[in-house]
């Protein structure tokens, strides 16, 4: 399909099988008013992969990830054409409700954004808006999600205390736990560690490694080392175009395009 390269080191047995895509972007164009922000994007994102999107500021990487769960709809004056298929369903079609898409596809934002509520209520929020009222289910899900985000041991004695009392890194893991509570299929992460210190960043990266066993993860990062450390596939965006999309190994060790080489070796960006 749209994938040309296959990660040869990590999953050789996948080579023969047909690859299952969570997202398939076809000829996607996006404009902010007159500004052509995404130009003819074609990208197939594989299930249970960590896919990193890298590129300099203003290259469209954040715009792209926000399009994947249609958070971009919140920005006035955005026009798109082309299609994005999530599990072979067109996310722009009228039949695919945006609320369903965002339930199946979780998002972690650049700045940790817990609600001004308790830790418990932050995680219960997603369940409550989906009509789950059973206390026991909520309690179990809160614990499971916090464990899933490697936060349980740190907060188990104070889950009814305000989330704002947590450190930045803990808040970001709480936001990840908040996503996990809805058992998403894909987790989108928009520069999730850019506001965190190195130790917190490391914890979030370790968490991503654990999460990839169960979830497909798409992560935008301006930190190239981070992309190299955690991702299976890397897409390099430049001026709204995908310059190169390949296994992370290939992108960082033998990129096909000279612009990719210039960027990863720090000659610009």
């Amino acid at each position: 399909m749209a994938l040309t390269a296959v990660n040869s080191k990590k999953k050789p047995e996948m080579m023969e099988q047909e690859e299952r895509l969570v997202y398939n972007t076809k000829n996607l164009n996006l404009w902010y008013g007159d500004h052509h922000a995404l130009k003819n994007i074609n990208l197939g994102i594989k299930e249970k992969d960590v896919t990193a999107i890298i590129g300099p500021s203003g290259c469209g990487k954040s715009t792209y990830i926000k399009t994947l769960n249609r958070m971009i709809d919140l920005v006035p004056g955005v026009k798109t054409n082309g299609t994005i298929e999530y599990r072979e369903r067109d996310i722009f079609s009228k039949e695919f409700l945006v609320e369903e898409l965002r339930t199946r596809v979780g998002m972690v934002f650049q700045k940790p954004n817990p609600f001004p509520k308790s830790i418990y209520e932050n995680i219960a929020f997603g369940l409550k808006i989906h009509g789950i009222k059973n206390k026991q289910i909520i309690n179990e899900t809160v614990e499971k999600s916090l464990r899933g985000a490697a936060l349980w041991d740190e907060v188990k004695d104070r889950i009814h205390e305000p989330a704002y009392g947590l450190s930045g890194g803990q808040q970001q893991r709480l936001c990840i736990a908040r996503c996990l509570a809805l058992e998403p299929d894909v987790i989108l992460m928009d520069e999730p560690t850019s506001a965190l210190d190195p130790v917190s960043t490391l914890k979030v990266e370790e968490l991503i490694q654990e999460l990839k066993e169960r979830y497909s993860i798409i992560i935008v990062t301006h930190n190239m080392q981070q992309a190299a450390r955690i991702s299976d596939k890397t897409a390099f965006f430049l001026n709204g175009e995908v310059v190169e999309f390949d296994s992370t190994d290939t992108i960082f060790n033998s990129p096909a395009d000279s612009r990719t080489d210039d960027y990863i070796s720090g000659r610009f960006g």
């Binding site: 965002r102 339930t103 954004n113 929020f125 808006i129 908040r178």
Partner: peptide
């Protein structure tokens, strides 16, 4: 950011207004 967090979890506009915007 708070509204985004709510929408990002699949909340409708009214749920976001009722549970996030108004309390704040």
């Amino acid at each position: 950011e708070l509204k985004e967090a709510s929408f990002g979890l699949g909340a409708t506009k009214w749920q976001t207004i009722y549970r996030v915007v108004l309390p704040y």
